[in-house]
């Protein structure tokens, strides 16, 4: 979110327990107006007031992009995380008022593709749900391969299968079903684009296999949001605003700046988009660069930091905010 970008005041209209781990939330505008349409793959940042702590988590939109009556997201409960997903699961009820960002797409379809080949792991299914709805409406060719732990934990698997039939392929780990990736990547027509969303290991596996099989890097797309990791508290000097702040163990540096009244730009809050990139004036210690944005050289030089996910340990960190 750029500072000053518009936000959408919403009310929660539906909370559905999809399975043991996942809840689905529906939001509609408080003023009754239409939501903006969006492109499949987009996310919104959901603002939460968790008993005085302001949390802002990105979630992929999974409702049909053409449905302007409301937005839907799915949230997987993370019992050891910082609490954003737990807050959504335990406190968010129908009727509650919340605030969303406008949709932002860091995982767009390449509309030139002759065919879209999608690989989802677990909760990574959500952006594909919206993308398939959009492709279906536009007459695009697609195929989904969706891997999950068990039928009980496979959110939306049966719904998607019923709706899209043989364009959807399901794989259950517990039943020892695995995606035969090499065979899958072998027979695709020139101009196919490959998309993967799921756990880190799955993304790495799909990317490495595609490279090995001769797929160009520009034909392979992935999205992985990082939850800001928890860690030890640390202190940061903000040079531009002349403040010294403390980042709590379950808080990100970005959140700590916001809590201290220092506005910083952001879009994804998950280390992927680059919007919050900040100059480091001085680093006497070690930065844990947890993002996907900075290059290895930039990380090694400690001249920049991504405050949404990265942390620090050491004597002094001075940044340009």
């Amino acid at each position: 979110m750029s500072v000053g970008a518009p936000k959408i005041p919403v009310v929660v209209t539906e909370v559905v327990q999809v399975n043991d781990l996942i809840k689905r939330f529906r939001f509609q505008r408080r003023d009754g107006d239409a939501m903006p349409t969006f492109s499949g793959g987009a996310h919104v940042v959901v603002e939460m007031d968790d008993h005085g702590t302001r949390r802002m988590n990105p979630y992929s939109l999974m409702s049909a992009p053409s449905d302007t009556s409301g937005y839907e997201i799915s949230v997987r409960r993370d019992d050891v995380g910082r609490g954003g997903s737990l807050y959504m699961h335990t406190h968010v009820q129908p009727g509650m008022e919340m605030v969303l960002s406008h949709p932002v797409n860091l995982f767009p379809l390449d509309n030139r593709a002759k065919k879209h080949l999608m690989i989802a792991g677990g909760i990574g299914i959500t952006p594909f749900v919206a993308q398939m709805a959009q492709l279906q409406a536009m007459g695009g060719r697609f195929e989904l391969h969706y891997s999950m732990r068990s039928p009980a934990l496979g959110a939306y698997a049966q719904v998607l299968k019923a709706h899209y039939d043989d364009r959807v392929h399901l794989y259950y780990d517990e039943e020892k079903q695995f995606i035969d990736l090499k065979n899958l990547l072998k027979g695709q027509p020139l101009g196919t684009h490959l998309y993967v969303c799921g756990p880190k290991g799955m993304i790495a596996w799909v990317r490495a296999t595609a490279t090995e099989m001769g797929w160009p890097a520009l034909s392979v797309h992935s999205e992985e949001f990082l939850a800001p990791p928890v860690g030890k508290a640390f202190e940061v000097q903000l040079a531009a605003s002349g403040k010294t702040i403390t980042v709590a163990p379950n808080q990100s540096l970005l959140e700590a700046m916001e809590a201290n009244g220092v506005e910083a730009p952001y879009l994804c809050r998950g280390g992927a988009c680059g919007q919050c990139e900040t100059e480091v004036h001085r680093c006497d210690g070690h930065i844990d660069h947890n993002d996907h944005w900075l290059t290895d050289e930039q990380k090694a030089s400690n001249t920049k930091i991504m405050p949404c996910v990265s942390r620090f340990a050491g004597a002094a960190l001075v940044i340009d905010r």
């Binding site: 750029s2 000053g4 970008a5 518009p6 969006f38 406008h102 879009l267 988009c273 680059g274």
Partner: peptide, 11 residues
């Protein structure tokens, strides 16, 4: 370019 890649809907 860097600025425009992050241009947001509604802004």
């Amino acid at each position: 370019l860097k600025f425009l890649l992050k241009l947001q809907h509604g802004a």
